[in-house]
Simulated scan of single mutants.
Amino acid sequence: MQTILVTGADGQLGNEMRRVSVNSLNHYIFTDVSDLDITDREAVDFFMKSEGVNVVVNCAAYTNVDKAEDDFAAAALINDKAVENLAIVCREMNAGLIHVSTDYVFQGDKNKAYTEDEPTNPLGAYGRTKLAGELRILESGCQYLIFRTSWLYSMFGVNFVKTMQRITREKHSLKVVSDQVGTPTYAADLAVVIYDAIGEKHYLKHPGIYHFSNEGVCSWYDFAREIATLSGNVCNIQPCHSDEFPSKVKRPDFSVLDKTKVKETFGITVPYWRDSLVKCINELRAKSNAR
């Protein structure tokens, strides 16, 4: 039996890890900042060694893209320094580290899907701190898997799907950007991949960086329309350009991730984004009806 530490357990992916691991024979420990401050090296060292942790799944992250521009230190503390703490202790304990990164490490100026070995060039503070965290892991010498993902959503927390459900239910019309293209990712699908990677010990067999999002490509406009339709909301959603919504940081125009490596290495089939969206909205509907 392995002892698995999941950090950032109160977030979207952390909650999905709780669900997928409920019948696991391994011992899962779920922590958030109130249980374990991963920015504190000594706290991480004491906790992991006293619990005999074999694998860390780091779901903790500073994800507010705009706020990171004004609060770089806080973003760097969580996305960079905390990751270094986990990586170093994992190396000392010969434990595996599974870390979640982002499509924002890329500039997003291409018109074909990004592979894992293509040059990175983040446009903003969030992407820079997430890339720095990746580099900390590589420099540490620990056993690792890094999963870059994109447009994450789930039935937990605040995300684009739940926000669009609310707005398209309350408003008659809405504008959504159509010039930013990527792929939504259902956190439950990523959780399954991570859970299976732990069981197969892929961090030992096939360490490295992998891209995982759902299959297919869409714009935020396309995504919003599908959310409204599947939710049964009638709203006049119109496409617009991103410059109509001024932001502190430019987001990637095209951040589709190539998933060939993860599919071939792990032997998995990746669900199509709309199919996974249907599952999530059905779960949200069931949860709402159960109240």
Score class of each variant (00 low, 15 high):
E118N: 05
D196Y: 08
L138F: 12
P119G: 02
S213T: 15
V249M: 12
A95K: 05
G199K: 02
H172D: 14
Q12R: 13
P239E: 07
M48D: 11
G182R: 10
S24D: 08
F245E: 15
T39K: 11
F223N: 11
P122T: 07
V20I: 14
D243E: 07
A74G: 07
A191N: 04
R274M: 03
L77D: 14
C218N: 11
I98S: 04
M1L: 08
T102A: 02
I237M: 04
V89C: 07
K171V: 13
D117C: 06
T163S: 12
K201E: 14
K248L: 14
M17Q: 03
W220V: 13
R285W: 04
A286K: 14
V65C: 01
A76W: 13
R225W: 09
V193T: 11
S21F: 00
E139V: 09
Y62K: 08
V158S: 13
E118K: 02
T3I: 06
Q180V: 00
I167Q: 10
I4H: 01
G182P: 09
G52M: 06
K81S: 05
E134F: 06
F106H: 12
R91F: 10
I268D: 05
R274H: 11
L5G: 11
N23Y: 09
S288E: 15
R251H: 11
